[in-house]
Every structure is written in structure tokens, then in C-alpha cells.
Simulated assay, not measured.
Amino acid sequence: MLAVAVVVLVAVVAILVPILTHQSAGGSGQAVPQGFASESTATGADGRTRTVEVRTPDGKPADLARVAPGSELVVTGTGFDASIGIYVGVCAIPAEPGRKPSPCLGGIPKGAERGKAAKEGAQPSVWITDDWAWKAFASHGYADAAKGAFTARVLVPEASSDGLDCRKVACAITTRADHTAAQDRVQDMQLPIAFAQ
């Protein structure tokens, strides 16, 4: 019984210590675009140049000025730090630059809390990580860790939920660091959206 307790304790420490000791790498360097651009590139404080792009499932640039709940958007990125997991979804644009994009629509990826996150199909929010301790709970890993590349299929959620109404508050397709680096803004990239009336 003692051996099991020691193994559990070691696993908990191995998971919690990186979260508690994570040092922010700074900001992403992105100025949130004015208007509705389907692509943005920025060089972060960590020296990485990140690009995020939003397309329709047939590969055309997405019209982010008129997104409709229930439609699918394909969000791709390159240059991200694959050692830091990210969430991809629709979040409020912070009033002050350098703040965490929050709150977000869509909640956590379906099934993530049970270690059975949906791996197929579009989801209102997507969790991407290569971290051994969290990979089973995430939607996906990075497609190419060396290039910091990912693809996320986002199912546009309803414009209002969880106390956020994107018809009244400026929102964006957002990437941000996951809970293991929650105060790190280096992975934050946003492309403004507007919901179709």
C-alpha cells in the first residue's frame, strides 16, 4: 500500500511542479487586427514567429465578419511553442493588451474531464498539447512539434453562453496557453469575429 501511495505522490508532484514553477515567456507580440482578417503573424517575446489562420473546411479564407453558430472553421497555426499546450476557441478580446483572453464560449472540450476528449470532428473548443501528463485529456497534439504547427476544427458555438455575449462584447478566434501555463501570454493570438444576425 505504501508503494502505491509513493507512486501516486510522485505522479502528482511530477504534474504539479511544472505548473507551479512555469515562468512566463512574455507576450505574443500580436496587435489584435482591426477589422476581420483571416490570418495574423506576430513575433513573440520568446523570439518565435507565430502565424494563425482561419479557413472554411473547403480551404477558403473564412469570412470572420459573419460567422454563424454551428458552422465549422479550420484554425491552423505555426511557430507555436509545442512545450506549452493551447486552447483554441472563441474568447472575448481583452480590454487591455497583455491580459488573458477571457471568458470564452464553448467550455472545455467535450469529454476532456474524463480523459476521453473528442478526437474527431469539430468542437466548440479544442485543447492541443504534447505534455505526457495531459495528452490523454486533450483533443489533439501538435501536428508538427518542431514547427509548432497545429490544426483545430472549431464548431462555432452560440454567440452567448457562460456569461459572455459576443453580440455585445468584441470576441475573436483565440489561441491561448492552457492551464499548465495559464499566466503565460506568449501563445495568445486573436482574429476578431462577428456573429451573423
Score class of each variant (00 low, 15 high):
Ile93Glu: 10
Ala37Pro: 00
Ser38Pro: 01
Ala196Glu: 14
Ala149Gly: 03
Lys135Phe: 05
Val12Phe: 07
Lys135Asp: 09
Trp134Cys: 02
Leu2His: 12
Lys100Thr: 15
Gly163Trp: 09
Thr51Tyr: 11
Gly27Val: 10
Pro192His: 08
Ala182Gly: 10
Ala37Lys: 14
Ala122Val: 03
Leu73Val: 10
Pro97Cys: 06
Val8Asp: 10
Ile15Glu: 07
Ser125Cys: 01
Leu16Thr: 13
Gly44Leu: 08
Glu113Asp: 14
Asp58Tyr: 01
Gly121Trp: 04
Ala92Phe: 05
Asp144Ser: 11
Leu16Asn: 10
Glu72Ser: 04
Val8Ile: 13
Ala133Asn: 14
Ala133Trp: 11
Ala11Asn: 10
Ala159Val: 01
Ala14His: 01
Ile86Ser: 00
Gly26Ile: 08
Ala122His: 05
Lys110Thr: 13
Asp188Phe: 02
Val75Lys: 01
Thr49Gln: 11
Val10Leu: 13
Ala3His: 01
Gly115Ala: 11
Gln30Ser: 06
Leu9Val: 11
Thr49Tyr: 06
Gly85Lys: 04
Val75Trp: 04
Ala42Arg: 03
Met1His: 12
Trp134His: 06
Ala45Met: 03
Asp63Pro: 00
Arg167Met: 04
Lys168Asn: 12
Ala14Trp: 00
Ala170Pro: 12
Gly77Ser: 10
Asp178Val: 07
Ala65His: 09
Lys119Val: 12
Ala170His: 10
Ala112Gln: 02
Gly163Val: 10
Tyr87Asn: 08
Ala133Thr: 14
Leu16Ser: 13
Ile193Met: 05
Ala146Thr: 14
Gln23Asp: 12
Val154Thr: 07
Ser160Asp: 03
Ala138Arg: 06
Glu39Lys: 15
Gln190Phe: 04
Arg55Ser: 15
Leu191Ile: 07
Phe195Ile: 04
Ala182His: 10
Val8Lys: 00
Thr56Pro: 03
Val10Cys: 05
Gln34Gly: 08
Lys60Ala: 15
Gly29Met: 06
Pro18Phe: 05
Phe195Ser: 06
Pro18Arg: 12
Ala136Cys: 00
Leu105Ile: 05
Val156Met: 13
Phe150Ile: 11
Gly70Arg: 09
Leu105Gln: 03
Ile128Ser: 09
Phe80Asp: 05
Leu105Ser: 03
Gly77Phe: 04
Gly79Thr: 11
Arg153Met: 11
Phe137Trp: 09
Ser24Ile: 07
Arg99Asp: 15
Phe195Trp: 06
Phe80Glu: 09
Tyr142Trp: 10
Asp58Gly: 05
Val12Glu: 13
Leu20Met: 13
Thr151Ile: 10
Val169Pro: 00
Glu113Val: 09
Met1Thr: 14
Ala143Ser: 15
Trp134Ile: 13
Gly106Arg: 04
Leu2Asp: 09
Pro192Lys: 10
Gly35Ile: 02
Leu191Gly: 06
Ser139Thr: 15
Ala136His: 08
Thr41Trp: 01
Ser102Cys: 00
Ala152Met: 05
Phe36Leu: 04
Pro192Gly: 04
Thr21Trp: 01
Ile128Phe: 07
Arg185Val: 09
Gly89Pro: 03
Arg55Asp: 14
Cys104Phe: 01
Asp58Lys: 13
Trp127Phe: 12
Thr76Gln: 12
Thr56Val: 05
Arg66Lys: 15
Ile86Thr: 03
Pro69Val: 09
Val10Arg: 03
Cys104Leu: 04
Ser125Lys: 08
Lys168Leu: 12
Gly148Val: 07
Asp130Phe: 02
Pro97His: 07
Ala82Arg: 13
